[in-house]
Each structure stands twice: as C-alpha cells, then as structure tokens.
C-alpha cells in the first residue's frame, strides 16, 4: 500500500545544526493495516508523516503509494488520496464556516469546485444525520461557525471530514494530544470505528502508550530515525504498556537522558 524505500532526510544541511534524521529508512504498510507509531520527541514520527504527505520532501529514496511513485508529487496532489488529521483541532476545519459548509467542502473532495450551489436541501439532512451519529449533540448547531466549537468537537469534525470521501491512507498526527483525557478517549474510539468500518489503511502517531497498545494491528517504536520495535498482529497483542515503557527507558538511558 504505502512503501518507503531507502529514504534520506537531513535537516539544516551544511550548517553546524545539521541533523541527519533518516538514512536508508524503509517501511512497508500493507493495505488495511492500522499502524500506531510511538517514540520520544525528535525521533522522526512527525517527519515520517510529513514525508508521506509531501509537506516536506525526501532528500533521496522513494515513496510509493499503491506501487506508484509519489516522491515528486506536490502535497496537494497527494492529498487527493491521503487524508490527514492534525494535532491542532483548528487545522482540520475552516473556522469561519459553519458545520454544514465545512462538510459540503469535504464531501466534494476529488471533484472540481465549480460555480454550482454548494449545499442543497437533501445534503443538509444527510450532514445532520452524519453529525448526529457522533453523539456530541452537534446536530442542533449545524449553522454555527466551527470556530465557536470546542477542540474535541472540532477534532471529531476534522476526523469525519478527512474520511468523508474514500481515502487510501489516513495519517493521524497526535490527533488526541490537545484534548482532555475523556474527549481524547472519545475521539480515539471514533477513530477506530471509522478506520474499521471503512477498512482504511492508517498510520497514527501518538504519545499515549495505552492507545498504541490497545488500538491498531501493528506497533512501531521510533528512535533517532530508526524503528527500534516493530510488532504486528499476535506479537503486537502480547505487548503491554509496561513492556513499552521499559524499552522507552532503555533507549533514554542509552542517550544519557
């Protein structure tokens, strides 16, 4: 499905601050797999997502989506097949537009945005049902600008917007990190439901070890641009939070933290 082959990435090249993050980095995620990624700050988790989405470009190596080389494709073209939810809830929605308007924008993804009326009467009802299924009581606030909603509500909306049209790959970038624990649980549960229902291939970066252990088919732990742990399916189920924490501590001691 998505494949990284011998990817190189250097930041601040040819300066004193030069950091070589990825060298010959390989990763293959088969279709339908839900992968969680953990790791300390600066381990390359977010850079990995940015490389796949095209926000930053690789210095060398190849990135393949469904066998097609997308390494040189600009971000907006890759986005046609890749959905993404960010840590900041305000990034995934248009704050000045209403819930209905936001959903109509998302629903039209992949089609041209021409001079046709954006929201029809039947669409309004469809959006209301969709939002009601979230169970957040947002269906009565369809005409409220999204900027007035809480972070959790906006993140839930970002999530359904990014998966409203079929996507091949969903990137989740610490998407529960800015929420309170209860809302975070709710969003995580919703994420899992959407991914399973639509059988989407997903790559989730998280700092929450419990989520990494409880959700997903495969777990990656990253450290200084390398995967130090990669377990899938049965082997992944055997991992406990305690195991993860001890590996985490070992790594930290190695680098003298």
């Amino acid at each position: 499905m998505i494949e990284l082959q011998k990817v190189h990435k250097v930041f601040n090249a040819a300066t004193v601050n030069e950091v070589e993050l990825f060298r010959d980095f390989d990763l293959h995620i088969p279709r339908g797999q839900f992968v969680s990624v953990v790791g300390s700050n600066g381990s390359g988790k977010t850079t990995l997502l940015n490389l796949i989405s095209g926000t930053i470009s690789a210095d060398a190596g190849k990135i393949l989506l469904d066998g097609a080389d997308i390494t040189a494709l600009p971000e907006y073209k890759r986005a046609r097949r890749i959905g993404r939810v960010f840590q900041d809830p305000s990034v995934g929605t248009v704050p000045d537009m209403t819930i209905t308007e936001n959903l109509s924008l998302a629903e039209n993804k992949g089609k041209p945005y021409f001079l046709r009326l954006a929201v029809s009467g039947s669409a309004k009802n469809r959006y209301r049902e969709l939002v009601a299924s979230l169970g957040l009581g947002l269906e009565s606030r369809m005409d409220v600008p999204v900027g007035l909603l809480s972070g959790g509500q906006r993140q839930a909306l970002s999530l359904i917007m990014s998966t409203l049209t079929p996507v091949d790959l969903l990137l989740l970038d610490e998407h529960t990190a800015a929420l309170d624990p209860k809302t975070a649980d709710l969003i995580m549960e919703l994420t899992n439901r959407i991914i399973r229902e639509k059988s989407i291939t997903a790559l989730m970066v998280t700092h929450n070890l419990r989520y990494a252990v409880e959700y997903g088919d495969r777990l990656l732990m990253m450290h200084e641009g390398k995967t130090v742990l990669d377990q899938a399916d049965e082997a992944k189920k055997a991992i406990s939070i305690q195991n993860l924490l001890s590996i985490f501590n070992e790594i930290s001691i190695e680098c003298g933290n």
């Binding site: 600009p74 971000e75 907006y76 073209k77 986005a79 046609r80 959905g83 993404r84 960010f86 305000s90 990034v91 995934g92 929605t93 248009v94 704050p95 000045d96 537009m97 924008l105 998302a106 039209n108 993804k109 992949g110 945005y113 990014s162």
Partner: peptide, 13 residues
C-alpha cells in the same frame, strides 16, 4: 482565506 492548509488537504492548490 480562513484555513489554507485545509484547501491543500482537499487536494487543491
């Protein structure tokens, strides 16, 4: 005008 990043994520320039 409100959130350029979202336009990009909708696959548009």
């Amino acid at each position: 005008g409100s959130n350029e990043k979202l336009v990009v994520s909708l696959g548009k320039n």
